[in-house]
């Protein structure tokens, strides 16, 4: 089953997302700040990263940009979950390469659907990528 890294500094939200996604059978790893997230991204590979924007050490946009600029991690799907609602930040996240942006409060069902969609898109496009290489 696909593995997902959840990065979120709010304890309640972190646990909740872990539980909700875990229920659907995904393998969930968590990080509660930017530093821990970078460590975990370094050592493991994931299919999807779900990240908050404002957290200690590094913000979520940095996570997105680091993933997108790394050849080996470019394929990872990224979903940003944040309470920030201004247009600038949202477009910035997409420009950096986030696949989805969910504004808090989120709908649990929506998160699940988006993850499923990301995973299925990736499976169909992965053949393309390999052929290009």
């Amino acid at each position: 089953m696909a593995s997902i890294l959840v990065i979120e500094d709010d304890d309640i939200m972190l646990k909740a997302v872990r539980n909700i996604l875990g229920k659907d059978g995904y393998t969930i790893l968590t990080a509660k700040d930017g530093k821990e997230a970078f460590d975990k991204l370094e050592n493991e590979t994931y299919d999807v990263v779900v990240t908050d924007l404002m957290m200690p050490y590094a913000n979520g946009l940095e996570v997105v940009s680091r993933l997108r600029s790394d050849e080996t991690k470019r394929h990872i799907g990224i979903i940003v979950i944040s309470s920030v609602g201004n247009e600038e930040t949202i477009t910035e996240a997409f420009r950096l390469g986030a696949d989805d942006y969910l504004k808090k409060p989120i709908m649990a069902g929506e998160l699940l659907i988006r993850i499923r969609k990301l995973l299925s898109n990736k499976n169909s496009s992965s053949q393309l990528v390999t052929r290009k290489k």
């Binding site: 404002m54 200690p56 050490y57 913000n59 609602g85 600038e88 930040t89």
Partner: peptide, 11 residues
């Protein structure tokens, strides 16, 4: 500088 960039603020 990194820590200054992580303020909890939108703008």
């Amino acid at each position: 500088v990194r820590s200054l960039l992580t303020f909890n603020y939108p703008k």
